[in-house]
Nucleic acid binder design. Sequence first.
DNA 1: TGTACATCAGTGAACGCGCGTTCACTGATGTAC
DNA 2: TGTACATCAGTGAACGCGCGTTCACTGATGTAC
Lengths: 218, 218
Amino acid sequence: MIGEIKAVARRHLETDGANLSLRAVARDMGMVSSALYRYFPSRDELLTALILDAYNDLGGTVEAADAHVTDRADLRGRWLAAARSVRGWALVKPAEYALLFGSPVPGYAAPQDTIAAAARTSLVLIQILADGHATGALATGSAGRPELASPVRADLAAVTAQVAPGLPEDLLMLGMTGWLQLFGTVSFELFGQLNNVISARAQFFDQQMELMCELMGL
Amino acid sequence: MIGEIKAVARRHLETDGANLSLRAVARDMGMVSSALYRYFPSRDELLTALILDAYNDLGGTVEAADAHVTDRADLRGRWLAAARSVRGWALVKPAEYALLFGSPVPGYAAPQDTIAAAARTSLVLIQILADGHATGALATGSAGRPELASPVRADLAAVTAQVAPGLPEDLLMLGMTGWLQLFGTVSFELFGQLNNVISARAQFFDQQMELMCELMGL
DNA sequence: TGTACATCAGTGAACGCGCGTTCACTGATGTAC
DNA sequence: TGTACATCAGTGAACGCGCGTTCACTGATGTAC
């Protein structure tokens, strides 16, 4: 029943964006709006549940896409598979993508519970870097790259310490470039910034990702 | 008076996001809500005006930042100046940034008028590439980079034909990588994706941009 | 097998609030003669 | 210089709609004796 409410609410996200209306959801379920309060203490809690589910849904999708690449040493293949799965998921569930990566909902603060779920996707990408580093396939720091400022280094070190011990900060920094470009591309496509500019969307995305892999040395 | 309404509306964007309320704006101006209809035919028209202004404001800021770099041959300096001005603008006017680059407002379609204004920022970046190409400072296509698929090439050629004739498509593609990473970084910072991960925001941004310049060969 | 009772999902009315837009109007300002 | 008139910015009431949340309630289901 909780599941059904969330399913209907997800459908409503499609049209209403984050202005999700409890009454509209209840109406669609053939219930009276107050009945929903048996399942969710408030509208915001429902929104939180949807966000959490979306993060896990995306994370699971990306994990599966990566796991599906049988040649684990094929770093580029894995990165591309993960990237494509992000885009694919976003195209199928644009409203949920917008909920996660779009403008923050005014007056709504995401609770801490979502952090772990939110990290799943990034973890897949970091693991690709870590694997590449472990096998020596991924060269550390080329010459000419700017040295990391120490506060940035500290931020990055805190991440590696927790999820990929031994991964050099410079590699993580480079991986984040790819991460930012990946989500930048998906967001711009979904949010309309590519309108009137790029029409071959899928191919453009693919080639952007390939180019980035090249730049990252994957 | 139209200007004053827009100024008040801009203040409201800060708290309400795109759910801008005409009545609230009128209230703040000490007027009755219907009075606004003398200046704007509808709420959506007001929103459109705000979007147009924001694009122009951002575009002007970025143009100025680029123009302020006296050594025009310092491509990296120009790119960094432009990138920093985007972030600086976004931090000062987060609501307007979200309006332009965040999730689309449900039920609102941006009219065609905004296209030219929206392009101003991108034009600055493209011009940097074009200048680099013209002086030969920016090498065309390294070996190993994937060849552009023809539909993508056609999309890119349409852009260069209009704003930077002679700029090779491969360079534009590479420039778009930087463009996507730039806005990806600003969006992630503003929309909270960097929370609990990066605390040295300004330095992280700077170093991401420098790294990207390195990768682009600027 | 049959009765008494507790549980609890869902109801319906209400509170108090918000919104965009329309419409006939008032009343001050400025122009024309 | 003084009167008559047009302009037009802003008013106020109303329409019809939406919302989240509370609260006392009904009535079916399932359990305990």
